[in-house]
Amino acid sequence: MVYFNSCQNTTMMPTRNSPASAAGVKYSRLADSDEGYIDLQFKKTPPKVPYKAIALATFLFLVGSLLIIVGSLLLAGYIHVMYPDRTIPVLIIGILIFLPGFYHLRIAYYASKGYRGYSYDDIPDFDD
């Protein structure tokens, strides 16, 4: 009668001392006490600043501000126009562009100053 060892596998599993298991993996020594917590799990990573999103927010803020100023001058009559019915849409588009730019710039400013409740994580990031 022939017995086969079901635990025998042709592929080698990496062991603790093999270089395959240590490639790119950071290990830390466990504490001697049995509390179940280690200091490394409470370590906070530094915040990643979303520069592209802040640049887009700055662009939206500036273009929206420009459109609001031009729309206000058109509506007040300081700039003479041939079709006065086109002044209101310029003002509305300016407000719609200005608001998200201002909102995200405000979050970025408060996060950079370290105010409680504001973080760069609140700004959508474009790193795909």
Rank of each mutant, 00 (worst) to 15 (best):
I68N: 14
Y118R: 01
F42P: 04
G94W: 04
T87S: 15
L66M: 15
V63F: 15
I93T: 14
T58W: 11
I54N: 06
K52N: 02
G117M: 04
Y37C: 11
I69S: 14
S72F: 11
H104D: 05
H80K: 15
N17G: 14
S28G: 14
N5P: 00
L73K: 12
D128N: 14
K43R: 14
V70W: 11
N9M: 08
P124L: 07
R16F: 14
H104M: 06
K113W: 00
V70M: 15
K44F: 06
D121F: 00
F4C: 07
Q41C: 05
V70I: 15
Q41A: 06
L40K: 13
F4V: 08
Y83N: 15
I38R: 07
Y78C: 06
P124E: 09
M12W: 02
T45L: 14
Y109D: 04
Y37A: 12
R106G: 08
L66C: 15
I69K: 09
T11E: 13
A76R: 13
G117T: 03
S21P: 00
F98W: 02
M12R: 12
R16P: 07
A55T: 03
A23M: 09
G114E: 05
Y118F: 10
T58H: 06
A108Q: 04
K26A: 06
P19R: 05
D128M: 11
S65I: 11
K48E: 11
S6Q: 07
I97H: 02
G117H: 02
L75F: 10
P47Q: 05
S65F: 15
I123R: 05
G117N: 10
L56W: 14
F98G: 02
D121W: 00
D32K: 08
I69T: 15
K48W: 00
G94M: 05
S6C: 01
